[in-house]
Amino acid sequence: MKVAITSTGDSLESTIDQRFGRCAYFVIYDIESKAIEFIPNPNKDAEEGAGPASVQLVASRNVSKIVSGEFGMKIKSLLDSLKIQMIVLKEPEKKIREIIEMLNHLNLNNSKA
């Protein structure tokens, strides 16, 4: 299962980007294979339509969850219709590494059960 995380930079020490549509990077993390990919957000400076374009980008990577600091109303509807889970984490200091550790820990517990 793949998870997208919005990131302020392209390293594991970068923090979560509180914006979804105009975040600096998308981290695509594959929980099973542990593969991590940093994708610079091409919609970062878009005048308009950044949200839907970003949804399209992450949807094309087949993610089933997105972790970000906020989702606008239009984005929420789009993701609802695509059945992608939204996780809102209002902690701007949280590092990508920490979020990935949480997801790994969760996956470990799930496979034990």
Binding site: K65, V67, K76, L79, D80, K83, I84, Q85, M86, I87, V88, L89, K90, E91, I99, M102, L103, H105, L106, N109, N110
Partner: peptide, 29 residues
């Protein structure tokens, strides 16, 4: 979708599958 709040990690999340009920926080479990 319906929204939930996790008391431990403080995140908010929705349940995209209305048919299945939510038991765990999708971030911290």
């Amino acid at each position: 979708s319906d929204w939930y709040h996790c008391k431990k990690c403080g995140c908010y999340f929705n349940n995209p599958e209305k048919e299945n009920s939510v038991i765990n926080c999708p971030l911290c479990g």
